[in-house]
Design a binder for these strands. Structure first.
Lengths: 196, 196
DNA sequence: GTCTATAGAAGGATAGAC
DNA sequence: GTCTATCCTTCTATAGAC
């Protein structure tokens, strides 16, 4: 009898890898560590992932999916509030309609870095761990930074604010991810002053 | 006949290690790489440094010495300008005298991150490469961040500005070191607006 | 799951050059 | 006696084979 394939196998490996990679760094974690944490055999890991680089890329893609979802949720929640205000008689909204979204964006990052299990930005961490890397995980990390930066640019452009505002918002986001002690709320308040 | 001791030995090793560690990361560089770059034998490295951790600590202390010197020079240059202004008839200076120093501090960081060979903050890089490390290099890195943060606090306190100003200046410094694309000048201009 | 091939790193030891 | 160069041990990691 052929043993049924474990459908949760890939997921279990990826979850174990995510935890270990994020907490200890990708370089410090060996495939053996991932296998032990996932409680599976070696062949299973290599069946689902061609190698450690592919596993790291999958890890970063997973983090990105979470981050994109959280960001979208935060922006949608703000837009719902904005629509309610419009319905209450504020009219077309017009210029300034995107200001709250920018603050919500910064606020979402602040919420993320405030978590007790925050250990830095997974993408920036990877690029620091492998400076000058041109592999699959590096591309995922670079794409995330590029796309997020563009998201800020688009929101600022929609607001009709000068380009330097986008630079400043991005400075705040960079600073939040660096997270060397300043209370995240300070960045959110500053963003609010900037666009409010 | 006894061969003459090489007085520049330690310095040569440390310079090679500094270049390699900073560009490629501490983890990615082996002691063999340092030895090859320094053009010396293995014994010499282990005579001057007990191990790789000690070498990494010496590397970070060297970077700190450079950074402290550059910072002191920038602040001194500003104070010289400030004194000239006082001599020109501005009186005691009083409140606001430290504003220019804060901008000079941020400006010095901006100059540093603008260099073509900038590869991030050596201290933050180390702490990212070795998350949770409690070794000698980690202590050097943590001490630098602590002391630099305190320097900002002291300047802001001397200025009589609220504590949140120190938080904001520190956010700008964190963002500069992160260096993910924003022109450094933006941070300096913002700092200038903040305290000016 | 275990066993093995291959590779790389840390660090100690030794041989030989000057 | 200090240098370079090499060898050696131990450990760890990736990856594949069974």
């Amino acid at each position: 009898m052929a043993r049924a394939e474990d459908p949760a196998g890939r997921e279990r490996i990826l979850r174990a890898a995510t935890e270990l990679f994020y907490v200890n760094g990708v370089r410090a974690v060996g495939t053996a560590d991932v296998i032990a944490a996932a409680g599976c055999g070696k062949n299973m890991l290599y069946r689902h992932f061609p190698g450690k680089a592919a596993l790291a890329a999958a890890y970063l893609r997973g983090v990105r999916a979470e981050r994109d979802k959280a960001t979208a949720t935060a922006l949608a929640a703000h837009r719902a509030v904005g629509s309610a205000a419009v319905n209450a008689g504020a009219g077309a909204g017009g210029a300034g309609a995107g200001a709250g979204e920018l603050v919500a964006l910064v606020g979402e990052v602040a919420a993320w870095v405030s978590r007790a299990d925050f250990r830095g930005c997974a993408f920036r961490n990877y690029l620091t761990e492998f400076p000058g890397a041109d592999d699959e995980p590096a591309h995922v990390a670079q794409a995330y930074l590029r796309d997020t930066r563009r998201q800020v640019d688009d929101l600022v452009a929609g607001l009709g604010a000068p380009a330097v505002t986008a630079d400043r918002i991005w400075l705040l986001i960079d600073a939040l991810y660096a997270g060397t002690g300043t209370p995240p709320r300070v960045a959110v308040d500053w963003a609010s002053e900037l666009v409010g």
